[in-house]
Computed example of a mutant assay.
Amino acid sequence: MDKKQRIGRYIKSSAVGGESYNAYIPQPLPPEPPLGMTELYPLLDKANTAIGRLDGMSMVLPDASLFLYMYVRKEAVLSSQIEGTQSSLSDLLLFETHEAPGAPIDDVTEVSCYVSAMHYGLERVKKFPLSLRLIKEIHEKLMDNARGGSKQPGEFRSSQNWIGGSRPGNARFVPPPPEYLMEGLDNLEKFLHDETIHLPILIKAALAHVQFETIHPFLDGNGRLGRLLITFILCTEGILKQPLLYLSLYLKTNREAYYGHLQSVRETGDWEAWIKFFLTGVIETAQQATETAQCIITLFTQDRNAIASSGKSTAAVLTIHAYLQQHPIATTTKIKETTKLSLPTILRSLTVLESLSIAKEVTGKDRHKVFVYDQYLALLSKGTEPLSN
């Protein structure tokens, strides 16, 4: 098999100032010659098994919406960190309780917009096919912040962009020029919906992600939207009932290899190496997500038992413990708004939870206290520390 036949073509273009550069036009999907499936099947079987376990776990969770709420936020933080934001999961949760996060506010707002884009997309794909129009709508939600407002939110680019370097002439990679954009995007949309192409859904998602990143259709937000695309494909095709797979943890941990594989596909046509990397990530991430869910269920059960055997169990203490499961960083104001308990009752109940090492006050202030469900947040936050600059 000559994989080099899969390599796209280069178009010679000239930038302002007369400097010429080569822009890359990818071949349409699926790859030709066809993928060597024999070498992919062992990993594909393992990946399907791991996702099946994760999906099965979502069916037996005491509150699947609770895990969904947190896992979506974890994916949002991780995917944004790949692009360089310094927001942690704690920063995002503080921001959502209207408290000042420790990271730059623009970073946290970007992550919050990712959460909005994910939810918007998941609702829309229940009623509409995954189309270019929908991708533009999701991009508009993703870029609804101070940094994204000037980057043509919801519109495919009308100018040349590039990856690495200070201009197209010295860039590491130059995507298709604007006049070739719709050709590539139309082919990608057809690939997503062509029922004559019989490929496993995980492989389809892996191919679509690279193709989207290669086309790079927006001025900004391509990486985050391309990773959202993976989630949307897996959910619309029924591989996942809930978006509990935070693949960005693996892509963040192996960031250099991730970028290397994207570029290698363009330069060598070796889709198989990328798909093996992708499937390994699915296996690892699905296993981690399943283990995390099991650990969280165990923690909640242990803490409920500790409350019950403490002799201090009241309806209010149990109500606040349940609230902290949904919001592991909380203020007394937010607890009061949601539970309708009185402030003295809330403070007494939190004192009980502190004495049992379940909750912890983190500001040291007399007023405007912030309480953290410490062990729960630690389980959720594993892997979400910002990358060092």
Score class of each variant (00 low, 15 high):
186 D>P: 11
218 F>D: 09
191 F>R: 00
191 F>T: 01
194 D>H: 05
197 I>V: 10
227 R>T: 08
202 L>S: 01
230 I>S: 08
225 L>Y: 07
230 I>K: 00
223 G>A: 10
212 F>K: 04
189 E>S: 00
212 F>I: 08
189 E>R: 07
188 L>A: 03
240 L>I: 11
196 T>S: 10
236 T>V: 14
208 A>Q: 03
236 T>N: 12
224 R>H: 08
212 F>L: 10
236 T>W: 06
218 F>W: 11
245 L>V: 15
202 L>T: 09
225 L>K: 06
216 H>Y: 02
205 A>E: 01
201 I>W: 01
242 Q>G: 12
223 G>M: 07
241 K>A: 14
207 L>M: 05
210 V>A: 02
207 L>G: 03
196 T>M: 06
228 L>V: 05
192 L>D: 05
193 H>S: 11
246 Y>G: 07
226 G>N: 07
239 I>W: 12
203 I>T: 03
204 K>M: 06
187 N>C: 13
229 L>N: 12
188 L>C: 02
197 I>A: 09
207 L>I: 02
224 R>T: 02
220 D>C: 15
207 L>K: 08
188 L>F: 09
208 A>C: 04
208 A>G: 07
199 L>G: 09
235 C>G: 08
206 A>V: 00
247 L>S: 14
223 G>I: 11
192 L>F: 06
202 L>H: 12
197 I>M: 02
240 L>T: 07
228 L>A: 02
248 S>I: 04
203 I>V: 13
235 C>D: 06
194 D>Y: 01
206 A>K: 01
198 H>I: 12
200 P>M: 10
232 F>N: 00
230 I>L: 15
235 C>L: 14
231 T>C: 13
247 L>Q: 13
194 D>F: 00
237 E>G: 12
210 V>W: 02
232 F>T: 10
217 P>A: 06
